[in-house]
């Protein structure tokens, strides 16, 4: 009887957005009198940071710092339609809608600035700090604060924009299944290293090395949050979680956090995250949805590592000590 080590690999891809498309999201952007920008949505932040990312996307597009953007979301009396936060769609769908709305608002802003500076709007650029400059002659400039005041009180313009993003729905062909499930895919490869106690069936995930390709890390610290948490959930799915431990038998289902098992802060694998960026053709600044796929590759990687360690295949999730012990017993019985 011994502690045995093994390692396993898994490689996956994952679609961004609702399968087969047809999932719209809209956004509205408008400027306040002093050049702050309000983004109005009905998208939901589940904790992944949707509000912050939409603020950064709007800020980048308009040409202002992120703290000049306010997010007003998920009030159906004011927010235009969003299909919802699921299917790794939030950043991609809502982000594209925000870009379109912000571009339209930016155009009005530049037109007003052009009138104030008596130049063509096409000759203007933003410095990202809240100013609009004449290209090649940056000493000639006006603050966005002043442009917004002018638009509101002098020129009677609404610095605002409408955005809409919809990938037309694909209908699978009945006999062949020909279809377009998604426009872009995130990718991952995970190597997990485990120890298995062949006397108790207990698995310890020692290290998990995850490489994720996510299009573009719009906010690297927030991407890291998702990927680290997702990697934890993948390991949790692999080894711990189920509401019906003896499925299809319905008995013994957990009803609280004492019975429904997940790794606690003392059960963490040493986790490494490496991010690659291959910008997607239709993503906001190339972004894809990393939120779901980051929890998938750990499951087969751990399963393969368990086999590498003790030579038994557990093809039923979760990979519990009981299942490992039964498999080891069957293996010993030959």
């Amino acid at each position: 009887m011994a502690i045995r080590r093994g390692r396993g690999v898994a490689a996956i891809n994952y679609p961004t957005g609702m399968n087969l498309g047809g999932d719209p999201t809209q956004a509205l952007v408008h400027s306040t009198p002093t050049g702050n920008f309000m983004v109005t949505l009905s998208s939901v932040d589940l904790g992944q940071g949707m509000k912050q990312i939409m603020a950064q996307i709007c800020a980048e597009t308009i040409g202002v710092p992120t703290d000049r953007v306010i997010i007003d979301t998920a009030d159906t009396d004011t927010g235009p339609h969003c299909m919802g936060t699921f299917a790794s769609r939030g950043t991609h769908r809502a982000g594209n809608a925000v870009i379109q709305a912000a571009k339209e608002a930016r155009q009005v802003m530049l037109e007003v600035a052009a009138e104030e500076l008596e130049v063509n709007a096409s000759d203007l650029e933003t410095d990202g700090q809240g100013n609009i400059l004449v290209k090649g002659a940056p000493q000639k400039s006006i603050s966005i604060f002043d442009v917004a005041l002018s638009a509101h009180f002098k020129r009677g313009r609404s610095i605002s924009g409408r955005g809409m993003f919809l990938i037309p729905r694909s209908y699978p062909e009945k006999e062949t299944g020909a279809m377009k499930p998604s426009t872009c895919y995130a990718h991952a490869c995970t190597v997990a290293e485990v120890e298995v106690d062949d006397e108790t069936g207990e698995v310890t995930v020692l290290t998990v090395k995850n490489v994720f390709e996510i299009g573009r890390a719009l906010n690297p610290k927030m991407v890291e949050q998702q990927l680290v948490g997702g990697s934890w959930m993948g390991i949790s799915h692999a080894l711990y979680e189920t509401t019906e431990p003896y499925y299809p038998n319905r008995d013994y289902g957990g009803t609280d956090f004492n019975q429904y098992l997940m790794p606690g802060p003392g059960d963490l694998a040493k986790t490494e995250i490496i991010v690659l960026e291959r910008p997607s053709a239709d993503g906001p600044f190339g972004a894809k949805g990393p939120g779901e796929m980051c929890a998938n590759p750990q499951i087969p990687a751990v399963a393969n590592a368990v086999f590498d360690a003790v030579g038994v295949r557990i093809d039923t999730l979760p990979i519990t000590p009981e299942r490992i012990m039964r498999a080891l017993k069957a293996q010993a019985a030959g």
Binding site: A10, A11, I12, A87, G230, E292, A295, N296, I299, P300
Partner: peptide, 19 residues
């Protein structure tokens, strides 16, 4: 629906099969 809907368990199966 759950995170990885339609795919998570499929990936488990596919990638163990690959091994």
């Amino acid at each position: 629906a759950m995170r990885g809907f339609g795919v998570t368990i499929g990936d488990f199966a596919l990638e163990v099969q690959m091994d």
